[in-house]
């Protein structure tokens, strides 16, 4: 398979001319993007521009009609793709947290490594407790999702993804459902991750965060990437009128 040819100096996630339709509605009209190892990329843009759909395509939750997406050289759009091996490499965090409500925080984190990776339970538990500390939720190990605030649930969800030791993390508007006060605690967790060198792709509306943490910012509108660049130039010298209009509304 192609993945054996991948070396870390090549893009970890590479999308080329991705097209995606839901029925007759074309959501992505040729999206291309390269994300290097250790990079943190923010995708911004108005609602309905296809940014969430795009990152859902990266771990195969949505399939694409044409184009190519590779993760560490492995083609996502390949019908023979082993989705499980792809998803072991790609972690995903959702807007609505999606914790498993019948399991407490530590069990939520431990389930996938124990059941999917068949790792030793004690080892996984030690790692899960370490992750709980990392997302600053000590003492909440035994709490059920229903007993946690939105921000706390989202941090458990991040820890749950990290427990699989993914190479890339996808964040799909992870702060959009949170109170303004709790947004910060989740963003801090993500920033720590990015600073440790985790490859991150975020769909977000948090411009301040994007400016501060992202290496690259992509602006999408109506299914295409209008423009992209490092935050310093992107925010100051946006060229496209659509980008300018969007930024003027949001900043």
């Amino acid at each position: 398979m192609a993945e054996s040819n991948w070396t870390p100096d090549q893009p970890m996630v590479s999308a080329k001319d991705v097209h995606k339709s839901f029925g007759s509605l074309e959501v992505l009209k040729g999206v291309s993007m390269d994300v290097m190892k250790g990079e943190c990329v923010c995708v911004i843009g108005p609602s309905g521009s296809g940014k969430s759909t795009f990152i859902r395509c990266i771990n195969g939750l949505n399939d694409i009609q044409s184009g190519s997406i590779t993760v560490e050289g492995q083609e996502v759009n390949d019908p023979k793709l082993d989705k499980l091996s792809l998803r072991k490499k790609v972690g995903m965090v959702f807007q609505q947290y999606n914790l498993f409500p019948h399991k407490n925080a530590i069990e939520n984190i431990m389930m996938a490594p124990v059941l999917v990776l068949k790792e030793d339970k004690d080892e996984v538990e030690a790692r899960a407790r370490e992750l709980i500390r990392k997302v600053r939720l000590e003492g909440k190990e035994e709490a059920y999702p229903g007993e946690l605030s939105g921000g706390q649930q989202q941090r458990v969800a991040i820890a749950r993804s990290l427990a699989m030791r993914p190479d890339v993390m996808l964040f799909d508007e992870v702060t959009a459902a949170l109170d303004p006060e709790t947004v910060k605690e989740v963003l801090t967790t993500i920033r720590d991750l990015a600073e440790e060198g985790m490859t991150c792709i975020l769909v977000t509306h948090e411009m301040g965060f994007a400016r501060e943490v992202a290496n690259q910012i992509y602006f999408t509108d109506r299914g295409v990437i209008v423009e992209h660049g490092p935050p310093a130039t992107f925010f100051k010298e946006a060229k496209d009128p659509r980008t300018k209009e969007f930024l003027s509304q949001i900043l």
Binding site: L61, K83, R87, M92, F100, A112, A157, R160, S161, M164
Partner: peptide, 13 residues
């Protein structure tokens, strides 16, 4: 369906 998606994205069969 979000529960299915969360579980799938954690590589559960």
């Amino acid at each position: 369906t979000a529960q299915w998606e969360a579980s799938e994205s954690l590589a559960f069969s």
